[in-house]
């Protein structure tokens, strides 16, 4: 029986990254894999459970969110720590999934490139990845809820089929799944989303538009570990 490990690189245990991780988990189970999902953030202080699972697996699937055009900082930390533990890296297949708010592939693709370069330097076999746009809007709901849900589901499952077969998964799959709309539609979308953002701001912040970080001597309301701000 083949073994795979799915690493959830998101700080959230419910959300779009986990939805994708779960879909991947179910798919690999149905292909007779022994597969488990492990979370990065609860293991940040001691990565040994992740290392043990990675050592045993033939395939590693990294699934995470896109923060400012690539995976969060702690993904870099994980990769750096893996690099220091070369004995657990022995040519496993590596696949990467990244999901972010913007509907475009180019916004999130740098994350996949980082995984590819990491794999190459450390003797892993990078077999491709998948980019899911509008992940923030999904907020953990199934892929079918996306405007381009049907097409994304189909392409994502084809990606998972490649993962199961330990074969290369081409970038064309997620490029084909990308939502394609005329510029005017995005213009309207921006207006609608901004109205929602302004409404939320008024409800939460009141009339003041000033950022709390604009205040000299920011009011830190957590009393126990307060630090004095020198600004």
């Amino acid at each position: 029986m083949k073994k795979a490990v799915i690493i959830n690189l998101s700080p959230r245990k419910v959300g779009t990254s986990m939805m994708l991780a779960n879909r991947c988990w179910e798919f690999l189970l149905s292909r007779d894999y022994r597969v488990e999902i492990l979370h990065l953030y609860p293991n940040l202080k001691d990565l040994s459970p992740l290392f043990a699972a990675i050592n045993e697996a033939e395939s590693i699937i990294m699934v995470g969110p896109c923060y400012i055009n690539t995976y969060p900082a702690d993904t870099v930390y994980l990769l750096e720590e893996l690099e220091k533990n070369q004995d657990i890296l022995h040519g496993q297949c590596l696949y990467a999934v990244i999901q972010g708010g913007m509907p475009y592939v180019h916004t999130h693709e740098s994350g996949l490139k980082m995984m590819e370069l990491f794999a190459r330097e450390n003797g892993l076999c990078y077999n491709g990845g998948f980019v899911v746009g509008m992940g923030a809007m999904l907020n953990g709901q199934p892929l079918s809820k996306l405007i381009n849900g049907k097409s994304t589901e189909k392409k994502f499952d084809r990606f998972l089929e490649n993962v199961a077969k330990q074969e290369d998964s081409p970038a064309t799959l997620y490029h084909e799944a990308q939502l394609k709309m005329p510029g005017l539609v995005y213009c309207i979308m921006a207006k609608i989303m901004n109205r929602k953002i302004e409404k939320e701001r008024r409800e939460k912040q009141g009339d003041s538009k000033k950022s709390p970080y604009d205040n000299h001597g920011l009011d830190l309301y957590h009393s126990k570990k307060d630090r004095t701000i020198d600004c």
Binding site: T70, A73, D74, V76, C187, A190, M193, S211
Partner: peptide, 26 residues
């Protein structure tokens, strides 16, 4: 590292989202 910002730089950059303009533009 691997075409990305260092871990420490990225930790700060990630936090910058809190002072990021939340609006969308075209």
């Amino acid at each position: 590292k691997w075409g990305s910002y260092s871990f420490k730089t990225k930790r700060i950059f990630d936090k910058c989202a809190v002072i990021g303009d939340r609006h969308y533009y075209s």
